[in-house]
Write a protein that binds this DNA or RNA. Structure first.
Lengths: 235, 235
DNA sequence: TAGTGGTCTAGACCACAAA
DNA sequence: TTGTGGTCTAGACCACTAT
């Protein structure tokens, strides 16, 4: 069951999208929202914080909570928390599995994944497209300890949805390292680019809510089709 | 005056760095921290949230707040909120001003900066080095409306510190777009790379706490010397 | 001066982990 | 079962904006 603040956030999002506040570009005051939703100030402020982190509103002390103008364009959040599918709910997201094998960690991977050498892992290589545009070529490893079963059908859909809803895993946080890399022959072929072309590379370590790493990945993004954004408060 | 939660966060950071919790890798419980600091649970949880966002700890419900292992290496937060200087407090950060001029916005810049065409802006081009390694080549514009005065001495130091402490500006949030770009001749020369080399490019729009944009910039990062990290909770 | 968001307190109950 | 963090309420005062 979703927390109350998230319900409020979702409803406020809907109201913003419906243009309910487009005249003033301002949300109702906190006191008004408390009234409207029959919630405490804690909840109302929690909901506003969710929207603020998503870059949809910004609160100004003494003045109100303002709706931000829409930035157009197809950008991916640099913290693509729940996978591409969740980032583009309105677009056609297709994952094509290029490799899927149950293998074992070598020394280097074991170190990265904080597990024993020779630990069983699923290795999954996928090409990911949004609206038929190739976006990324991803190599991911999932510890079999946490993901006992996997097949191509599952990997073609949303792996994160599967792990959360079917396996009952609870996610905690991710670490990402972002740098520039060059495409190898195979990655270039898959993405429709040239070998040696540059790519934004995001190395991602994903942890469960108990702090255990369950998934590491190496993601090469198409330099034309994939742009990222990031919002940060400066407090 | 800093808020109480931030004081607690700073002190906890100090205690973590001092190794006070290195045996268990766990912070004291919330109740214990309430006791130790004579603060409310709100404050204690606020402090923990600050550390969690910085990736220093992660809370596990029912279990405790765990200290995260140090990730080594020199990475820059993708949300380099207060400028490079604040990100590397222990390193030698040098900004060399390559250009500094009071000019006016053309149509394209005016659109980006949400201001009138021909609005006065400072244009500042800087090469930024950390420990004598070239990190980035940055072109930035500051609206004169908010930054009435600027000179090379100020721009050689921390512009953000100047704006905050001397001009009394209060920062709100930033929007960043991250993509790959190629170095032009001048940028390559400054960074000690070859023309045509790839670079991570971050376009940054910075807003005051009242939601007004005051600074836009275009930052090219050295593909070898600059790596970024980003942490995200997956809730 | 009035209105609004920011911080803080005190206390309650819930969800989950570990014993 | 016990202890921990997560959510929620009610109420207070402060900092800032706008008038």
């Amino acid at each position: 069951m979703a927390a109350k603040q998230h319900e409020l956030a979702t409803d406020l999002e809907r109201r913003i999208a419906a243009g309910e506040f487009s005249e003033t570009n301002k949300l109702p005051t906190e006191d008004q929202l408390i009234e409207q939703y029959g919630a405490s100030r804690y909840c109302v402020r929690g909901a506003i914080a969710v929207l603020a982190e998503a870059g949809e509103v910004f609160p100004v002390r003494g003045s109100g909570v303002f709706v931000r103008e829409d930035r157009g364009g197809m950008y991916m959040p640099i913290s693509t928390s729940y996978g591409i599918a969740a980032d583009f709910p309105d677009r056609k997201v297709v994952s094509t599995v290029r490799e899927l094998a149950l293998t074992r960690t070598d020394e280097k991977l074991a170190k990265r994944m904080r597990c024993d050498v020779d630990a069983p892992v699923w290795r999954v290589v996928r090409l990911r497209c949004v609206d038929d545009l190739p976006i990324s070529y991803e190599t991911a490893w999932y510890l079999k300890e946490y993901v006992p079963f996997l097949n191509e059908e599952i990997a073609s859909g949303s792996l994160y949805r599967y792990m959360r809803e079917d396996l009952g895993l609870r996610f905690g946080f991710t670490d990402k390292v972002i740098h520039v890399d060059w495409l190898g022959a195979e990655a270039a072929r898959q993405l429709g680019l040239e070998e040696g072309d540059p790519a934004i590379c995001i190395e991602d370590d994903a942890f469960l809510s108990n702090g255990k790493l369950f998934n590491a990945s190496y993601n090469l993004y198409h330099y034309k089709n994939a742009k990222f954004y990031s919002m940060a408060s400066m407090r």
